[in-house]
Simulated assay, not measured.
Amino acid sequence: MDLARMLDNCHRDQWSVGDLDWSRKPRSMPREDEIAIVQLFTDMSGIERLAGALFREQERRVEDPTLKAIFASFVKDEVRHSHAAQMLADFYDVHHYKEYRQSPSLTAFAPHFVDAIQYLSDDVANAYIITGELILDIALLRSINDFVQDEMSSAAMRLINRDESRHIAIDYYMAEYYGSEEYEQKVAAQEQRMSPARIARGTRAFVNVLYHGSPFIRDVFLDPMALVDPRGVRLREAFKRAQILGRKEVNARRPFAKFQRFLQDGVNHPITGPILGNLFGRLAGPGKDMLKRMYDDEELARARRMTYDELAQEALAQKEAN
């Protein structure tokens, strides 16, 4: 990847929520649909703030000045996305059927997640953000937009999707680095210097993320997708991309990657799956159904022959697929 060119794109493609025409009139919706859509955009606003916190932490940790500037621009993107999502919630809240607040599971998960990313290694943070953005970009945003079928939503999603494409490209770029021997050696040296107190705080924070993660993912991602993408085609595609990326390297170097593989293998094992599948799915977050193998041997072999950039481009192309 040409990081200088990426940074130029980050600067060139900045936009403001004021660039959108908010004078339009939203299309008429049934009561149930209006309530669901307003709640979806309300939660989306909170999700984008979490993504911003992750990028802020990545900006703090990377040493390359160009990468720092790229992640700083991503933080601005996510703040703008959060603002746009809340304005979309207000735009479609035509009849004020209820007072909308972000889902309690999101409220419970957010502080633990923000706390955890301060202590966890970079590869863990990147694993969470790339999975979340694949779900958001390939599945949730597109499906919400199709469900709303309104010009206002389409205009906003077009700009948000353009930003998210840059994010996913860099996510894959960083995934390659975090899976490398160079990074493994670097982080191993850092971990040797970590104090017992910091390790304890990090462990406690990660346990809280695991505990609160499952209801958060269910309420904010999986249940809404059941409404806007009932067949689950896009959701399975997003999880398949995440699974393949996690398996691209034949041997996982980092403990978190090994942990993820252990949970997925456990769910798919003919003995442990029926017995411990629900537990493994809870620990992973999305539940056992999303841990079931969604790729075949040929797809995995093909992915391992591809570069990370090629995988990113394929994921981005999937956004435009029906």
Rank of each mutant, 00 (worst) to 15 (best):
K186Y: 15
P30W: 03
Q102P: 15
E310V: 00
K186I: 02
A85W: 12
D223K: 13
N145Q: 11
P270Q: 13
G281I: 07
G179P: 13
P104F: 00
M29H: 14
F147Y: 15
Q118D: 08
P26Y: 07
E314F: 00
R60C: 03
T203D: 00
Y173R: 12
M294T: 05
V220F: 06
A252M: 01
R101D: 02
V38M: 05
R304C: 10
G213F: 09
L279D: 02
D19S: 03
D43W: 08
I170C: 12
V94W: 06
V228N: 04
I160N: 06
E299S: 09
Q58E: 07
E133R: 07
E78T: 06
A108W: 10
I130M: 03
M6Y: 06
D229N: 13
A301I: 04
Y100L: 03
D19L: 00
L141T: 07
L263V: 08
A226D: 10
D297G: 14
A155W: 06
Y92G: 05
Q14C: 08
R162Q: 13
L88H: 08
S105H: 10
H212V: 04
G202M: 00
Y177S: 02
G246I: 03
S105C: 05
I144T: 09
L40H: 11
L7N: 09
P196M: 00
A188S: 15
G285C: 02
P224L: 01
S121I: 00
A108Y: 09
K76L: 14
D163T: 03
S28Y: 07
A84S: 14
A89K: 12
R27C: 08
Q118W: 11
E34H: 14
H95D: 11
M225Y: 04
R231G: 15
Y178V: 03
E299I: 07
A72G: 15
E249Y: 12
L7V: 02
H83Q: 11
K240C: 02
S195V: 06
F206V: 02
A315G: 13
G287A: 02
